[in-house]
Computed example of a mutant assay.
Amino acid sequence: MPRSERVRPWLALLGLILGVCVTNGFARFAYGLLLPAMQADLGWSYAQAGWLNTANALGYIGGALLTMVLIRRAGPARLFAFGMVTTAVALTAPGQDPALGWQTLWRVLAGFFGAMSFATAGALAAQLFRDDPRRNALAIALLFGAGGGIGIVLAGAVLPLLLDRLGPAAWPMAWTLIGLVCFAFLPLGRWSAHVLRPARLARAPEPQPLPIRQMLPQIGGYAGFGLGYIVYLTFLSAWMTELGASAELIALVWVLLGLCLCLSPFLWRPVLARFATGLPLALILVGVATGSLLPVLWPGGLGLVVSAAVFGLCVFMAPGAVTSFLRQNLPPDSWGPGLSLFTVVFAVAQTLGPFGAGLIGDLAQNIGVSLAVAAAVLLCGAGSALLQRRLVTPD
C-alpha cells in the first residue's frame, strides 16, 4: 500500500479531531474559563452568568434535533463541515459586543451549530478502518479524547494567564483569539469531510427503525453522564477560585485535564474494541464520578490535580463508548441516526445538570454538595449502562 494511502485516513481523522476541538473544547468549555472575567467586568449576577451556559445547552438541543432530522438527507459529511464553519463564526462574535442579548444569541448559536458537527463526527470516524476493529476503536477514542483535550489544553494554557496579566476587561480579546484559532482549523476539517463524503454509505430505501427499547439501559447511562459530568466542568474554576487558587494553579489543572483527555484513548481503546455491551460506558462513568467526588473528599491543590487527572482520563470516552457500541450492534446506515438520538438525550440532560446543581449549591451554600450529588448521578448512570447487552449476535 502506498504511503499516501496509509497516511490519508489518519489525516482525515486529524481533521475530525480539530472539528471536535472547535465544537467541544472551545464552544462548550472555554466559556467556563472566561466567565469569571466577564462577570467581573460586566457586573453580571450569577444568574446572568449561568444563563449563558443554559442558552448554549438549549442551542445544543436544537442542533441535535435538527441533525437527527437532516442526517439521512444531507449526510454527516456536509453537516459536519457546515457546523464547523458556523461554530467558528459564533465563537468569534461574542468579543464584538458586551450586551447580554448579544452574548445570549451567540452562545445559543455556538451550541446549535456545534451539535451538528459533534453529532456527525462520530458517524464519520466510524467509517475509518472499517475492516480493522482495533484501529477503528482507536480512531473513535482519539476523536473524542484528543478533540476535546486539545481544546482544553490550548484554552487552559492561555486564557487564565492572559486574563490575569491584562485584567478582566481583556475578555473580548480572548474570544477573538479563540475565533482565530477555530478559523485556522477549518481547512483541514473541511477537507476531511470532503474526503469521507464519497465513503458515505448509500441510504437505505426503507431504513430500519432504531431498537430504542433494547437500548434503554445505554440511553439511561448516557443521560446520567450528561447530567453529572457538566457539573464538574461548570463549577471547576469557581470551586478553585473559592479555594483561593492562583491563576497558575488554575492553568495547571486545566492543562493537566486536557492532557489526560488526549491520553485517555490509549487507556480505553482495548475496552472499546473488546466489549459490545454497556460495560465500557459503565466503567467510564465510575471514573468520572470518582474524579467529581475527589475535590470534596480531598480539598486543596494536590486533590484538585489528582481529580483533574482521573476525570480527564475518563470523561470524553463516554461519547466514544456510545459510538463504539452503535458501530458493533447496528448496521452502518443506522450509525448516524443512532448517534443523533444519543446526542439529543445527552443535550437535554446536559441542560438540566448545571441548573439543578446550582439550586443544590444555593440551598446547601456549598458547591461541594453539588459535586457529590453529581457523582451519585454518574454512579446511577453506570448502573444503568451495566444492564446493557448486545443487540446483535456476532457473525
Rank of each mutant, 00 (worst) to 15 (best):
L166Y: 12
T393A: 14
A115R: 02
P211C: 11
A174V: 09
L109S: 08
L188Q: 13
I150W: 13
G189V: 02
L216C: 05
G278T: 07
V158F: 15
L58D: 06
P198E: 09
P2G: 13
A273M: 12
G244N: 09
Q103F: 03
L371I: 07
N56I: 02
L279Y: 06
L272V: 03
I17D: 07
A81G: 15
V253S: 04
V306A: 14
M1L: 11
A12F: 02
G278L: 04
Q218N: 12
A37S: 15
P160E: 12
G32E: 05
F129A: 11
L227I: 10
Q48C: 03
L259Q: 04
A169G: 13
N24I: 13
T393Q: 12
A90N: 11
A238G: 14
A289D: 09
A30I: 08
S192A: 15
L42I: 06
I71C: 13
G156C: 11
P172W: 12
V369W: 15
F185A: 14
V195E: 15
V344Y: 03
V89C: 07
G25C: 09
Y60S: 09
P295V: 08
G59S: 09
L304K: 02
L281D: 10
A308M: 10
L261Q: 13
A119N: 02
A349G: 06
V153Q: 06
G122T: 01
Q39C: 03
S370W: 07
G312W: 04
F325C: 01
G32I: 06
D41Y: 01
H194C: 03
A157G: 14
N366Q: 14
A90V: 10
C21E: 11
P209V: 08
A282M: 10
Y232I: 12
L379S: 07
L210Y: 11
W10C: 05
L243N: 07
